[in-house]
Amino acid sequence: MIKICHLYPELLNLYGDRGNIIAFVRRCQWRGVDVTTREANLGDPVDFSDTDFLFLGGGSDREQDLIAGDIKRRRAELRSAIENGLVVLAICGGYQLLGQYYRTGDGRVIPGLGLLDFYTEAGGKRLLGNVVIEVMLDGALVRVYGFENHSGRTFLGETEPLGKVLAGNGNNGCDGWEGARYKNVFCSYLHGPLLPKNAGLTDHLIALALKRRGLDLPLIPLDDRFEKRACKVLQDRLL
């Protein structure tokens, strides 16, 4: 049984984010893996050590302000779960939240959770459009497709990037990197949403979650023709 926790679904739910949960759940179910999804909103108790997959989506500025206080109270517990291999996917606003800080246009510094080493600065023009990146999964380079829409520019410190930009802007439009990755934490600006089209990445997250439960087995392959066709549209257009 895999336990999913969708954190702040009422507040962080821009850009079809729930598609990520749908994809994760379906790909478990299609393989006969039991899965439960729990939605945790402001103030709801969450036991991160008893969670297998944590999802954080994107939100507007107002919504991110609302959750800042709430998530801070969960920091210590979240940190130890991450160190113990909790599988996390954080998109856009959820991604920015895990870093050191966010510097606004007027120079105000809003501290982040500081769980990963990167920071974000407000930028002028929004970075917007279809994106292709290349991600290393289990020793193989895999292309990951999505759509980005962010004005924040993220710069990585010690934390590794999720992948290399093949088309689009990525973290900041200059250094060619997209997202961040630490242990089993995956951060990205890509929505679209990210997981449904990118079956390889989804399966990688499922495998990591199962492995943490002691089930280190290869996943049953699924028929991914629809996923491949959806990716091919972007591949033909962008690469």
């Binding site: 598609g19 749908i22 994809a23 379906r26 449904p196 089209k197 028929d223 629809f226 996923e227 066709r229 959806a230 091919k232 549209v233």
Partner: peptide, 18 residues
């Protein structure tokens, strides 16, 4: 349409038989 493939994918994940 230009993104008919994405629409088909959405239907598949909605639980509609391919």
């Amino acid at each position: 349409g230009r993104r008919g493939e994405e629409m088909a994918l959405r239907l598949k994940y909605a639980g509609i038989s391919t």
